[in-house]
Amino acid sequence: SKTSNTIRVFLPNKQRTVVNVRNGMSLHDCLMKALKVRG
Rank of each mutant, 00 (worst) to 15 (best):
S1G: 09
S1P: 15
S1H: 13
S1N: 13
S1A: 10
K2N: 06
K2V: 09
T3A: 14
T3S: 06
T3P: 15
T3I: 15
S4N: 12
S4D: 10
S4C: 12
N5V: 10
N5I: 03
N5S: 15
N5D: 05
N5Y: 06
N5T: 14
T6P: 02
T6V: 12
T6A: 05
T6R: 05
I7S: 02
I7M: 06
I7P: 07
I7L: 13
I7V: 06
I7D: 10
R8P: 01
R8H: 01
R8S: 03
R8L: 05
V9G: 00
V9M: 01
V9L: 04
V9K: 10
F10L: 03
F10S: 05
F10Y: 12
F10I: 00
F10P: 10
F10T: 10
L11V: 02
L11Q: 00
L11M: 04
L11R: 02
P12R: 03
P12T: 04
P12A: 03
P12S: 00
N13I: 03
N13K: 04
K14M: 08
K14N: 09
K14T: 04
K14R: 08
K14S: 10
Q15H: 01
Q15R: 01
Q15E: 05
R16H: 15
R16C: 01
R16P: 02
T17S: 15
V18L: 02
V18D: 00
V18I: 07
V18F: 04
V19I: 14
N20K: 15
N20I: 14
N20H: 06
N20Y: 07
V21F: 10
R22C: 04
R22S: 04
R22D: 06
R22N: 10
N23T: 12
N23Y: 09
N23C: 12
G24C: 13
G24D: 11
G24R: 14
G24A: 14
G24V: 06
G24S: 15
M25E: 07
M25I: 15
M25V: 15
M25T: 15
S26H: 10
S26R: 07
S26C: 08
S26G: 03
L27Q: 00
L27V: 09
L27R: 02
L27K: 07
H28D: 08
H28P: 02
H28S: 07
H28N: 13
H28Q: 14
H28L: 13
H28Y: 09
D29R: 10
D29A: 08
D29N: 11
C30G: 07
C30I: 15
L31R: 01
L31V: 05
L31M: 05
M32L: 13
M32I: 12
M32K: 13
M32A: 11
K33L: 10
K33E: 01
K33Q: 04
K33D: 07
K33G: 05
K33R: 05
A34G: 12
A34T: 02
L35Q: 00
L35V: 04
L35A: 10
K36S: 10
K36M: 12
K36E: 04
K36I: 05
K36N: 12
V37E: 00
V37W: 14
V37G: 01
V37M: 06
R38C: 00
R38Y: 10
R38S: 04
R38P: 03
R38L: 04
G39D: 12
G39S: 11
G39A: 06
